[in-house]
Computed example of a mutant assay.
Amino acid sequence: MILKHQKHLFNIEDHITYLNTASLSPSFKAVEQAGIDAVLQKSQPYTIPSSDFFDPVTELKGLFAQLIDVDESERIASIPSVSYGIATVTNNIKLNSGDEIVIIEEQFPSNYYAWKKLADTYDAKLITVANPNLKAHNAKQWNQDLLDHITNKTAVVALGNIHWSNGTIFDLKAIRAKTRKYDALLIVDGSQTIGAFPFSVKEIQPDALICAGYKWLFGPYGCGYAYYSSYFDDGEPIENNWANRLHSEKLSDLTNYESQYKPFANRFAVGESGNFIYVKMQIEALKQVIDWTPKAIQDYCKSISYEAVEELTGLGFQIEHADYRTHHLFGAKLPEHINIKDLKTVLQEQNIFLSFRGSYIRISCHLFNTKSDFDTLVNAIKSIL
């Protein structure tokens, strides 16, 4: 599938250059309308049938399962955040003293704090694999260093599919193979890839995949998704809500208290997961992303950005080789001759939105962007040289 830009599906003004989906996505017009319709329906609660606590959630989980290549949608849980999903994981892991948890340098905080606490609880070690910071072949070396740190002491490897600030791709297939060798868990944060970069649970076989829903999945802020493998089938949720219990669909019998949870990942869903507003917005968003396909999105982002990448490299920016990073999100390390304050000023003046991450600018694009957006960015940078 070859995609053309889809700006007509969004409400982004023409004078705005938005290259910051990695921080917060804009809504499709269809998602916006679904939210409005749901808000209006809440004003007349008698129009909301009891089935709306469950049926839309079932549809939503089926869509997410399709997106990540999972046959059993009951292995998907609706969650409010990545930190919630990771907390559920760590709540169901026991370690031995001296065990090691492997993460990468400057991992997103929500995928760090929980592992630090788990390591401290069991007198285990948190092993951070540093960014080599090489001028060439950095991602290749970083991946090798990561594999070298997976040993017979490793109990868990927890990381994103890519680095959230620069787009470096981590070879999850190789990592999964190494963790299998030592019977270690692989926990993946897909927040910056799922929806825009191809991913298959069948291929990677992670023990858990946790994903924010408000970035590349275009849902409202405060929604997320989690996939839990069979390792967690008998796990303990971090909360006890009525909807996670067996037979909870029978609302008239709710006080016949049930000791058993629903099977698979259903037990881990957040309370009020049947959110009438969020779920309807999420469904519209996932339908569109699935229709586009992550591969076609990735190809489109490459097509509109590659010339700008060449120009930025020529201006002294350091950008990872295209084979080792994603195209919807990538970092450009600032050369010494560019003043960050001057750059921030010109970007603000010209309504160009992206993120600063240390010595990098993080550029993230989607189908509402065009090559002209990258031309605008490059020209803005040239104006301060």
Rank of each mutant, 00 (worst) to 15 (best):
D291N: 11
G222T: 00
T293N: 13
L251M: 12
S110W: 00
V270R: 10
S303M: 05
D71F: 09
R362T: 15
M1D: 10
G358V: 09
I338F: 03
I2D: 15
E239K: 09
A285R: 02
M1E: 12
P263L: 08
V270L: 07
F268M: 02
I204Q: 11
G224R: 00
G35R: 12
N91H: 13
W142H: 14
T313S: 15
L343E: 00
L286T: 01
V156A: 06
D37Q: 14
Q348Y: 13
K61H: 06
A243G: 14
G274C: 04
T326E: 04
D71A: 12
G271K: 08
G167R: 11
E74K: 09
I12Q: 08
K202T: 12
Q318T: 12
L185E: 02
Y306W: 12
L95K: 04
K42G: 03
I104E: 05
W142A: 07
F356G: 02
A322D: 15
A87N: 13
W142N: 06
S50T: 08
N351S: 12
L385D: 11
A322N: 14
D183M: 03
G62K: 10
S23L: 15
I86S: 04
Y113W: 14
V188H: 09
G167I: 04
I103R: 11
R180M: 13
I12V: 11
Y122M: 06
V89E: 07
L329M: 10
N11R: 12
V70L: 14
I238W: 06
L172D: 07
N143G: 13
F170I: 11
I48H: 07
Q44F: 15
L251N: 07
S97Y: 02
A22F: 04
S27L: 15
L377K: 03
D207I: 07
Q205A: 14
T90E: 10
N379H: 12
N20T: 01
